[in-house]
Design a protein around this nucleic acid. Structure first.
Lengths: 249, 249
DNA sequence: ACAAAAGTGTTTAAGGTACACCCATGA
DNA sequence: TCATGGGTGTACCTTAAACACTTTTGT
C-alpha cells in the first residue's frame, strides 16, 4: 500500500513549543496544505503523512514575516528535500466548521499530553491548498515533528484522511486534467530526460483516457517544446525510443 | 470621470463598534475583496469606493460563523443590491507587508478619531480576491459605513488606489480574457436579452482585439447556448438585429 | 521468423480564417 | 437610393481523428 514508511520518534518538547509559540509566530486561522503528486509505475501518487491512524496532507502555517509563497516553498522543501520545488495554487477551503478539535484531542490523548479546548490549533482554519508536481525518484520525503510516517498513495486508492483532505486531493486531480492540456508544468512529474511513450502514458494516466499514440507524438513534437536526444537502450523487445528533454528557451 | 457618486455621512458610532467588535466577530488577518465588473457604453467598468481621496475595492471581513462564499455573497449584496450576484474566486494576495496602517491612520486623523497602532485593522491582511460580473443597469451601488462615495471607473483608467488594489483589478482583467473563451459566465455583463452585435462588442472589449463578425456569430449560434427571440426595433439605420437569451437547460 | 514496441504516414472530418455577398432600415 | 448595420455564405487553410504502415529490437 505504501513504501518507505518511516517511523517517527515523537518529541514532547518540540510539540510544547509548537503549541505555545505558534500563536505568536504564525498567522492565525490560516494554513497551507500541499497535494504533492508524483508519477511512479504508471500511477499518480500522492504523498501523505500519518497521525494516529488517519492520514493528512503535508502542510503548515504561515510565519507572520513571510509571504504565502515563501511558506509554501519552505513547507515543500522540508517535506520533499527538493531545493526548488514546483507548486501552484489550487483553491481555498474554509467552511465555518473547519476545525481539527477532535483530531488534536485524539492526538494529545495518545501522547498523554493535556488538551486545551481554546488552543489556537483547535480554532477554525482556512487553508490555502496548493499542488506540487515532483519527480518521484528525486523526492526524499521527511516526516514532520508530529507525523508517525509518510507514504505515497495511489490517487485512486486514498486512505482514511483528516477532515476535507481527501476532497482537496480530488480537487487537485481534477485540476491536473485541466492544466495538463496547456501547460508544460506536467513534465515535472518525469525525470529531465524521458521518452515519448513515457510522456504519452503520463498524459493518459492523468486524463484517464486513451490518447492516440501517433497524434500525441506529432502534437508534442510540433509544439517545439522538446529537443530530441540520443536513443535509449532497452532490454525489452521492440524498437528503442528516443529520449527527449524540455527545451530551455 | 465617474457617475452617480454618492455623498456618505460618516457615523462615528458605527466605526467605534467596527473597531472594538471586529476583532471578535471576524477571522483575523483575512479579508475578501471584490472586483465588481460591469459593461456600459462599450467599456468595461469597475466599481470602486472612495476613502480619503484614494479609491479601494469593495470588500469586507469573514464572520467567524460564515463560510467564505457566504461572506462574499453578503458583501456583494450589500454593495450592489443584487439578490443573487455572480462571483468567482480570483486569487490570494498576501505579502508579508500587506498592512493598511498608513491608510487607516490618515482616515482616523481626518475624522478626529484616535489612532491605535496595535488595532487589528493595522495588522497584516491576506485577502481572498474575487471578481463579479454584473449587469450595469441592474446594479445599484451602495457605499459602506466608511466610504465617502462610489464610482464606476473604466478598467483602463483606474484612479489612485489603496495598496495592491490596482494590481488586483488588473489580475481580474487578465483572468476575464482567459475565462471568456470557455465559460458562459460572461453573459452576466449583459441584460438577459441582448443582440449578437452587443455580445460581439463585449467580447472584443474584453479580449482587446477585433473578432471576425461572421465567425463570431456562427460560433455563438453553433454552441447552442442561445435561443433567438423576436427582432429588436431600432431607430438607427440598418437592419434590425435579433435578440437572444441564454438557454436555460 | 515473429511478436512487441516505437516511429511515421495517409485519409477524412471538423473547425478556424478571411472575405464576399445579401438583406433591412433610416435619412 | 445610398450609406449603414446586420445576417449569411464560400473558399481556403489548419488542426483533429482514426487507422495503416514501417522500422527496430529481443526471443
Amino acid at each position: 500500500m505504501w513504501q518507505n514508511a518511516t517511523i517517527h520518534y515523537f518529541c514532547n518538547v518540540d510539540f510544547q513549543e509548537f503549541i505555545t509559540q505558534g500563536e505568536k509566530k504564525y498567522l492565525p486561522n490560516l494554513s497551507v496544505d500541499m497535494v504533492i503528486i508524483g508519477f511512479h509505475e504508471d500511477k499518480l501518487k500522492c504523498l501523505l503523512l500519518q497521525i494516529n491512524e488517519k492520514w493528512l496532507l503535508p502542510g503548515g502555517y504561515i510565519l507572520r514575516t513571510e509571504s504565502i509563497e515563501s511558506a509554501t516553498v519552505r513547507i515543500l522543501r522540508e517535506r520533499t528535500g527538493l531545493p526548488d520545488p514546483h507548486f501552484k495554487f489550487l483553491s481555498v477551503f474554509g467552511g465555518p466548521d473547519r476545525k481539527f478539535t477532535k483530531e488534536w484531542q485524539h492526538f494529545l490523548k495518545s501522547h498523554n499530553l493535556p488538551f486545551k479546548e481554546d488552543s489556537w490549533i483547535n480554532d477554525r482554519f482556512v487553508t490555502l491548498a496548493h499542488y506540487s508536481l515532483v519527480d518521484f525518484e528525486k523526492t526524499n520525503p521527511v516526516v514532520g515533528n508530529l507525523d508517525e510516517a509518510f507514504a505515497w498513495f495511489n490517487l485512486d486508492e486514498l486512505p482514511n484522511m483528516w477532515m476535507d483532505h481527501k476532497e482537496i486531493v480530488l480537487a487537485a486531480k481534477e485540476r491536473l486534467k485541466n492544466d495538463i492540456q496547456k501547460e508544460q508544468v506536467t513534465y515535472n512529474l518525469l525525470p529531465t530526460e524521458f521518452t515519448m511513450p513515457q510522456l504519452h502514458q503520463l498524459h493518459q494516466t492523468i486524463l484517464d483516457e486513451n490518447l492516440d499514440r501517433s497524434r500525441f507524438q506529432k502534437k508534442m513534437l510540433a509544439s517545439g517544446a522538446f529537443e530530441r536526444l540520443q536513443k535509449l537502450k532497452k532490454d525489452s523487445p521492440g524498437r528503442n525510443p528516443y529520449k527527449y528533454r524540455v527545451k530551455k528557451s
